[in-house]
Write a protein that binds this DNA or RNA. Structure first.
Lengths: 215, 215
DNA sequence: CGATCGGTTGATATGAATCAACGTGCGTGG
DNA sequence: CCACGCACGTTGATTCATATCAACCGATCG
């Protein structure tokens, strides 16, 4: 559904591709751009730097995701974006997107749905960061990403491709990497989930849901 | 700028007003509505309930603010809304707003700007909740609201009308009311800000900025 | 082969939560 | 008019969750 923004045929037509390596900065806050960028392959994340060198990861980006939805309406990035794995990007001129929005009401609704969904995700995450414990935060993040991964990939054997390092989890849920490590240890001991080697293996989905769900 | 969504003349034309009392629930999550609601007077807040009875305040609503921007594009509330003070609301049929969006490109941009600004606020708040200490969180909230209040009102003498209870601050920044109380005491002792009687009195704006700013 | 990165573990420190008690002002009902 | 309850703020004592500091390990890579 997110991928609808990108016209797949554009790949062949105009070679608007760009490759970035794992860890590379894709865009930085305040940077201007007249293109909307879409993740073609690989993962990335949006983040905000805070003064003391720490950072908050705002959203992980999966293949098909719009790197910065703000850029549909604004001409500069509101946050920085970094590649989590090696990745490929496509650029779509904002002008063309705006023209299509003006021409096609249903396309406007597609864009609006993406923005609304992202905003809702952010607001749920606010509740998670503001009100929930370390275990609950991490479980929530897992469930959230599992849902998004499942939308693209068939999941076999309760194993999810999951390229995050413990430090990324820490930066996303507002904990230290050391504490994330301990919580992952607890999950492993309790037989809830195991994360290793870039694979998230869900052993007890019910329990994970119980801990991490907001409902 | 936010008020532009509401046509001021609509007040006289059709009596679409509604009055709510302080503490009253304006809307609850999942509730359907074919109207977009705007705060005419008084304050409110959007919030998400979490299972254990706690809640996360997502955004305070000032006069002129759209109660739920989602409702421009969707037909149900994504969060609950409660009146913080006595307040008056106006309802605008979503159909009319959508029609005006379709007809008037600049109006679409106005709506988009509101949504983008709110999303950016949420993302900044994520960084605040994830990465910053109690003092920093509260200072950030004060600065954020001071900016929004200043957009509507002339501020004299560094005093801001500020109808929040300590519990509201706690629910917004993810702390307990007791701890908020202690931090406010520290701010008072240090001569940074004083909050009492519904008035926020800024004694040392520079220091407040230093503590609360994300930059 | 050494250096670096990611993960793991232990000891200790600290910020915020929790529990509890108390004061004060206010509205309401007797 | 008084008495009571209630909401809100305040303060102290204690506990608890998470951070911090530090050391170490194994794998990978140049």
């Amino acid at each position: 559904m997110l991928g609808t923004l990108a016209d797949p045929q554009a790949h062949q037509r105009t070679q608007q591709h760009q490759t970035v390596r794992s860890g590379e900065l894709i865009a930085s806050r305040q940077q201007a751009s007249e293109n909307v960028i879409v993740m073609c392959s690989g993962w990335g994340f949006r983040h905000l730097q805070v003064p003391d060198g720490r950072k908050q990861i705002l959203r992980f980006l999966l293949p098909g995701d719009v790197v910065s939805t703000d850029l549909v309406f604004e001409d500069h990035f509101s946050c920085s974006v970094t590649a989590l794995t090696d990745a490929q990007l496509t650029r779509l001129p904002r002008e063309k997107i705006q023209a299509r929005i003006a021409a096609d009401k249903s396309f406007l609704m597609t864009v609006a749905d993406i923005c609304v969904a992202e905003h809702r995700n952010s607001e749920e995450m606010l509740a998670v960061l503001g009100q929930r414990s370390a275990e609950q935060r991490i479980a929530y993040l897992f469930l959230h990403l599992m849902k998004r991964i499942s939308a693209h990939n068939v999941i076999r054997d309760q194993r999810y491709r999951f390229p995050l390092r413990q430090q990324h989890i820490a930066d996303a849920v507002g904990l230290t990497a050391v504490h994330v490590n301990r919580v992952l240890g607890i999950f492993r001991d309790r037989g809830v989930v195991e994360l290793s080697d870039g694979v998230l293996h869900v052993l007890n989905a019910v329990e994970l849901q119980r801990v991490g769900s907001l409902n």
